[in-house]
Design a protein around this nucleic acid. Sequence first.
DNA 1: GCTTGACCTTGACGCAGCGTCAACCCCGCA
DNA 2: TGCGGGGTTGACGCTGCGTCAAGGTCAAGC
Lengths: 270, 270
Amino acid sequence: MLTIGQLAAYSGVTTRAVRHYHQIGLLPEPERDASGYRTYAAPDVVVLIRIRTLAEAGVPLARVQELLAADDEGFAGAVAEIDRRLRGEIKQLQEHRRRIAQLAAGDSLALPASVTDYLDRMRALGAPDLMVEMERDAWILIAAQFPDQIEEFMVEKQAYLDDPLMRRLLRSMGDLLAGDDESEALLAQTADVLAEMAEQAAASGELDRQDDALPDSTFVDLLDTVVQAAGPRMVRLRDRLQELMVERGWSGIIKLERVDPPGGRGVNSA
Amino acid sequence: MLTIGQLAAYSGVTTRAVRHYHQIGLLPEPERDASGYRTYAAPDVVVLIRIRTLAEAGVPLARVQELLAADDEGFAGAVAEIDRRLRGEIKQLQEHRRRIAQLAAGDSLALPASVTDYLDRMRALGAPDLMVEMERDAWILIAAQFPDQIEEFMVEKQAYLDDPLMRRLLRSMGDLLAGDDESEALLAQTADVLAEMAEQAAASGELDRQDDALPDSTFVDLLDTVVQAAGPRMVRLRDRLQELMVERGWSGIIKLERVDPPGGRGVNSA
DNA sequence: GCTTGACCTTGACGCAGCGTCAACCCCGCA
DNA sequence: TGCGGGGTTGACGCTGCGTCAAGGTCAAGC
């Protein structure tokens, strides 16, 4: 007669494992001796070695019983299925390796290379850090929402960076954010550039495509909160620019729409 | 402002996952609105997308925080370590596949091919099923205990099967087990064969090697319980044969030892 | 204003396969 | 008889959530 420790030693498992197998009903509870110890004999060792053999081959405990009782045919079928599962798990882990290698290769977290290229170029053209970070967060959201279209978007955006108007805008924004406070003249100048870009976008028909790309108004709201997250100063700046844009006949910043300017035309009505 | 469901949808995870991340402190708990709902904004979506990106690449949640905060160098190091882990898991699964393929290829559970070959040959030579099953279980125990020596043992055992004495023993055992009851004549005949084999083993020095191979007397006891598991009839048979063997100057069956026979010599003293 | 259905809340169990205490009992030896 | 090294049951921990359970809330249609 064997104690649980001896059984475990002969079978090459731990005592904890044996008790676990009892608990899940894989191994029947044996007789107890006078003091409550479980008592085992050779057949238990044999069964336990079989269980261990299967478990070490990756068979889930829940299926071990079935396999122990299976005939040759059933056994072969079950084994084939378990092998399929193992292959699937291996493929998944290999996919994990691929992804993590990509991350290590410099993909900013959650952004494809095309977007990080774009952001790098913005920075190189003098865009202030705060603005680049806002762009980055916005593009993380967009890339998650429209993963299939992100590459087209980037082609378009890269083309924009060649436009002298965009260069001027980036410089203006840089100037605006450089000091602690912003001058009205600088704000007006920035708004002028923005308005001019809006006209150009309207002329090229881009505004219509924008409506297709961003049909979801709540998503636009979400993008808007990126600005809020950038801090109160950025919000104030955005609000001021929006006011100035309305005077120039445009509402919205993320999603532009033509509006009637209040009061006169281009006149400072504040 | 977003609810947890909207946050989850934008980030591509489940609400349950978001709450889980709160629970483990991976994502800070946000403000609540008047009715106790969690309220989120864009930065939460951004962080959550980053978390998902890492998690989908196989980074354990416990390390995600660290990776989000890491600089390029630390990030690369951590990624390398995670890749090592993934490689290890893949290797383990491949090992599982190898083993399960072996099992499917016909290895009886927990026994190498050499032993199943031996058992098959025993059966072919007319050994009764009950005896072969006892042998099988005994060899499962031995193979688990002495995995490195099992092949040598089998070479020796296979040689035995060529011995005419062993053939006679198998036939005798078959005859003994064939009926419901066993005749004294058959028992005596079987004991004679056993005694002759013992003499032969002693002459070839095999008994000494047996002492080296089975130093553990408790292991011999364990092997003995294999007989008990085969049923009361087998136990009775074994006991009777042992008595007869003692008369012929041998004790034990699994581990033979020379003894003084009681009373006369080869005379039926029962 | 009331119902309905979708969404929110906290809390808790479940999964695989045990590892690892904790608190207590039992056995053999000096 | 005391001690040290076993044994026993019970329960929590780990990973990453899924899935009830039992409500409270919100928006919309009647």
